[in-house]
Design a protein around this nucleic acid. Structure first.
Lengths: 221, 221
DNA sequence: CCCTTCACCTGACAAATTGTCAATACGCAT
DNA sequence: ATGCGTATTGACAATTTGTCAGGTGAAGGG
């Protein structure tokens, strides 16, 4: 249905329409009109993915809510998965801002872990349901999705860097492969936070428990 | 399309056709014919879910491979998700057998963790791709799936029991909520093993690293 | 100010898929 | 062999996806 050529064609269109005649904004090579359509589509997609979830949301619903024609959706995204990953990426960016803000206050490993969890709560309070919708295992959405990193993977990378830094500063004693550590931490946090939400665990207790477990994992016995 | 009544009707059919006239096996109330169709369908579903993944597998493909009519699929499963969860449940059962066998050899917490990881490898060697296909986050497959437990949740429950036992035997010192511990462990293991597979990490090194991290997490600082 | 031109958009359409159901086949008890 | 209810079947209606020929609008030239 959509071979590499087709996919690339759309991606290229996003990049630059060659600024021939009617192309507006020369700065980024994208017309104002196109950007506006894309913005409306992403906003609609976000709302629907959060409200209904991935599977109950159809491209036609997104187009309709965005107030653009059905075909326009496919001019901006190759398919629903592409649209979803764009949304998830956006959420990652937003979370990272909150995260960096919180991490600035942390003075050691334990505080960093706790601040991360508090940042997640803060973002979720401000954007109910968004994280749950975005932080999904994309392996299930498509078999072959090696080109784009999933939110989970991206987040694991961030944790890896933190682990490396802590190790350099002798804050932790674990000699576990840092990249593996990043993945273990992300897996534990996602599952743990999901559990806490599902069973309505007290917020502070959950954060303390997870922080204790992660801190223990990072310290060699 | 399928209200509760329809769903229940199918479930009831699975349970017992009332053993009136032509119902064969009185022992379980299911005719041999029906059981055979179901067996063929599950076998076909398993093969396709493993080979192509959840989304690339269509009910019609399953029926065709099973050698039964398309409509038969819907007599045994309400939809594809129902079929998938049945498959995943079966895999859980199989893994548990291997797991119990391995755990019998373990003499302490660290060995138990390692034996679990070895059990996973053993099962994966014998059934390539099956675990990866089954151990998926079902939250993404359907928004409302509160009735059946996902494989991950079921597995978290098993870990919870192990944690409770270790704690009772003073093998671990963690005072983290055991049910939370179970979820943290499962999340870490899934993500960690997925990472190990993706990056082709040496098997023994991966197991040692994960075991070390988990053991640390279970020990109070 | 109008005209040209190209990027962008539109919605009808063909293809693919899902779930249903009336008709049919099957197997067991008699 | 026959009767009867269970189990199966495949055509069908409904839904959804992705495409494309034609239309629209904005920037630049005359």
């Amino acid at each position: 249905m959509s071979d590499t050529t087709t996919k690339e064609a759309v991606k290229d269109a996003d990049r630059a329409p060659a600024a021939k005649a009617g192309s507006g904004d020369a700065a980024n090579g994208l017309s104002r009109r196109r950007l506006e359509s894309r913005r409306k589509l992403i906003a609609a997609a976000r709302q629907l993915f959060v409200e209904r979830g991935y599977h109950a949301t159809r491209p036609q619903d997104i187009s309709k809510l965005a107030g653009v024609g059905h075909g326009t959706f496919y001019l901006h995204f190759t398919d629903k998965l592409d649209c979803f990953l764009t949304f998830a990426d956006e959420v990652c960016d937003e979370l990272e801002v909150v995260l960096q803000d919180h991490l600035g206050r942390a003075r050691n490993v334990e505080e960093s872990v706790k601040e991360t969890l508090y940042a997640i709560y803060e973002y979720s309070d401000a954007n109910p349901g968004v994280l749950a919708a975005a932080m999904t295992n994309t392996a299930m959405l498509s078999v072959e999705e090696t080109k784009r990193r999933s939110p989970m993977e991206r987040w694991a990378g961030q944790w890896t860097e933190m682990v490396l830094q802590w190790r350099a500063e002798k804050d932790i004693t674990s000699d576990v492969d840092p990249l593996l550590s990043g993945h273990l931490i992300v897996g534990a946090i996602s599952q743990g936070m999901a559990y806490g939400y599902l069973y309505q665990v007290d917020r502070d207790k959950l954060i303390n428990d997870i922080a204790q477990a992660l801190f223990g994992a990072l310290t060699r016995q």
